[in-house]
């Protein structure tokens, strides 16, 4: 039991735990959590606790990673409500060419880039008409809505911001206000009635 390699193997455990602690991306942290589980199973087996090693490998690595991967994937999402007729055809073959001339696709790409900076995933939710879109924002089905503003709201000469982006989450408003560089949208914050769902 007093072999010299035991100390070297045990030193791997705080090394991988430190790597897990300094990781900021949740998906990368999941992978490193798997590595920590593998190293921990090795350490337990070397120290003679075979049952603990088996439990760590099966429950600690497999089940914990799977459950937390599902949790991270379903919670780190920004739901963006849009109108169906303004939706650019994503399944189109010439998608890259359409992205260059369509300002709405540019705006979506900008929103996706600023969401990805905070490890959020952007999910587009299409709605049939503006009324149901507004209701979805109030009833907390989506976090952000993005619609084209009607041209009679202000004079045509000043129409440099053809899109209206509304959010009901205070933190998302702060993030988008500092990071969204697109000049084609106007950002507003709307207080939704308080409730359980976020």
């Amino acid at each position: 039991m007093n072999d010299s390699y035991v100390y070297i193997i045990i030193a791997l455990l705080p090394l991988s735990a430190l790597m897990l602690m300094v990781q900021v991306n949740p998906y990368h942290a999941l992978v490193i959590r798997g590595i920590l589980g593998a190293v921990a199973a090795l350490v337990y087996a070397v120290l003679g606790a075979a049952d603990v090693a088996l439990t760590e490998a099966l429950v600690g690595t497999m089940l914990a990673i799977t459950l937390s991967a599902v949790a991270v994937r379903s919670s780190l999402v920004m739901r963006l409500g849009i109108l169906e007729d303004g939706l650019p055809n994503v399944e189109d073959e010439s998608k890259t060419e359409r992205e260059q001339d369509c300002p709405f696709a540019h705006l979506i790409a900008d929103l996706r880039a600023s969401a990805n900076k905070h490890h959020l995933r952007l999910e587009l939710v299409p709605y049939a008409d503006p009324q149901s879109l507004q209701r979805a924002l109030i009833e907390k089905e989506v976090h952000v809505t993005c619609v084209q503003r009607s041209p009679h709201q202000e004079s045509e000469s000043e129409d440099v911001q053809p899109y209206q982006t509304t959010t009901r989450v205070r933190r998302l408003y702060e993030i988008l206000q500092t990071e969204l560089s697109s000049p084609t949208t106007r950002l507003t914050y709307m207080t939704a009635p308080s409730g359980e769902k976020h």
Partner: peptide, 29 residues
């Protein structure tokens, strides 16, 4: 310890496969 090593070697990679599926679906969406 040998039996535990064999079980970890054969079953332990199933969690890796499940994690890879979740990450692949995240990249396609």
């Amino acid at each position: 310890i040998g039996v535990v090593g064999v079980i970890i070697l054969s079953v332990g990679n199933a969690g890796l496969m499940l994690l890879a599926h979740v990450i692949k679906r995240m990249n396609t969406l």
